[in-house]
Computed example of a mutant assay.
Amino acid sequence: MATFPRFLPLALCAMASFAQAAQADPLRIELNALHPRDGACQLVFVAQNGTGADVSRLVLEAVLFGQQGQVAAMTLLDLQDLPADRMRVRSFEIGGLSCGDVSRLLINGLNECAPADSAACTAPLALESRVPVEVLQ
């Protein structure tokens, strides 16, 4: 009859914890709404930090494209702090841009992310859109 070492349950528990950490949710950024404002377009984002680590600052470099594929605007989106396992809503007004003219939003990269070694700063973002604007990276 085979016997199991006494440390086997502890090892299995540690392996399960490691697997859960490796499968932590990414940082999700959703373009949730577009609102026309007087001479501007307000972009509303919902950010969900599922990485398990606080992000003290996240600034994204964003490029908005018009209906004909031309670059309509480039801007920095300062999402500020994103606590672990919390949802935050942030909005930005882009002057001189009609919401109906926006066809795509490219997250060109991270302009700033702190702490730099956190999972949110090193893993790819999970991007989504609830409006008819394609969001990509």
Rank of each mutant, 00 (worst) to 15 (best):
P5Q: 05
P5I: 02
L10V: 14
C13H: 00
C13E: 03
A14M: 10
A16E: 11
F18V: 15
F18M: 15
A19T: 07
A19S: 10
A21V: 08
A22G: 04
A22R: 10
Q23W: 01
D25Y: 04
P26L: 15
P26M: 11
E30K: 05
A33H: 03
R37W: 00
G39Q: 11
C41Q: 04
Q42N: 13
L43N: 04
F45E: 06
V46R: 08
A47H: 01
A53H: 02
S56F: 09
S56I: 14
R57S: 11
V59F: 01
V59H: 01
V59R: 05
V59T: 09
L64Q: 01
F65P: 03
Q67T: 15
G69N: 10
G69P: 05
Q70A: 15
A73V: 08
A73R: 13
L77R: 08
D78A: 14
L79V: 07
L79M: 14
Q80M: 09
P83E: 09
D85R: 06
D85I: 01
G95I: 06
S98E: 14
S98P: 03
C99Q: 07
C99W: 00
V102F: 01
V102S: 06
S103W: 04
R104K: 12
L106N: 06
L106D: 04
I107T: 08
N111S: 09
